[in-house]
Design a protein around this nucleic acid. Sequence first.
DNA 1: CGCCAGGCCGTGT
DNA 2: ACACGGCATGGC
Length: 235
Amino acid sequence: MKTGSGRAGQQAARRLRRMHDLLAAAYGPQHWWPAATPLEMILGAYLTQNTAWKAVERSLENLRRAEALTVEGIRALSVDALRVLIQPSGFYQRKAPSIKAFVALLDAEFSGSLEAMAQMPSEALRAKLLALPGVGPETADAILLYALGHAVPMADEYLRRIATRHGLVEGEAKIVRYEHLAALTRAAFAEDSAARRTILYNEFHALTVAVGKAHCGRTARCEGCPLECDLALRS
DNA sequence: CGCCAGGCCGTGT
DNA sequence: ACACGGCATGGC
């Protein structure tokens, strides 16, 4: 059965929507976008893979000082130079070539223009991004949503934990598929207009990260969480 | 000092 | 299809 169809799915979707409302009330607008430039969002999406954002900021600062926070800037850097600049956020042997591969795709198929890339329909572009090295479902959707303004839902480790700990999905957190969570998020905002969904997906993911950092890491820190899950009581 | 962080990929079953 | 280890650094 597909997520969102069926009584249990609709119930979970409604509860997820309610979580968004609670988080929005508790934390307010997150301004993840358009605060940063599209390319900065893309670089952040790569650099933050299993990495604390604090470390990503150091790398972005290095890139800023090297005037490499633009497509031209990244293009002009050698892979080796890029590796050095992004060292603080780890996994640089993989991330540096991956970032260069993104720019290579941008140049080869979109004349180096992010605006041109953004014109491609979401589904086709998502497939292209997923074919790139170092781009999985979360990074692809982060690029689509935050850098290119497409109305695609996002999921991440925090949402996985939240959904699992609140009983919105079956099974242990680790075996809950990304696509399942994304579909659940789509269902949660299905009644909103297309234009509004981009904003809602954007804010919801940012809010998920905000509450996740504070209260829903690998080890639960439920104290004071606005979502008030009863994890402490259950375990 | 040990655990954790806004994943992804190759390998083995 | 799914589990599991490796990737690397810095913060707490």
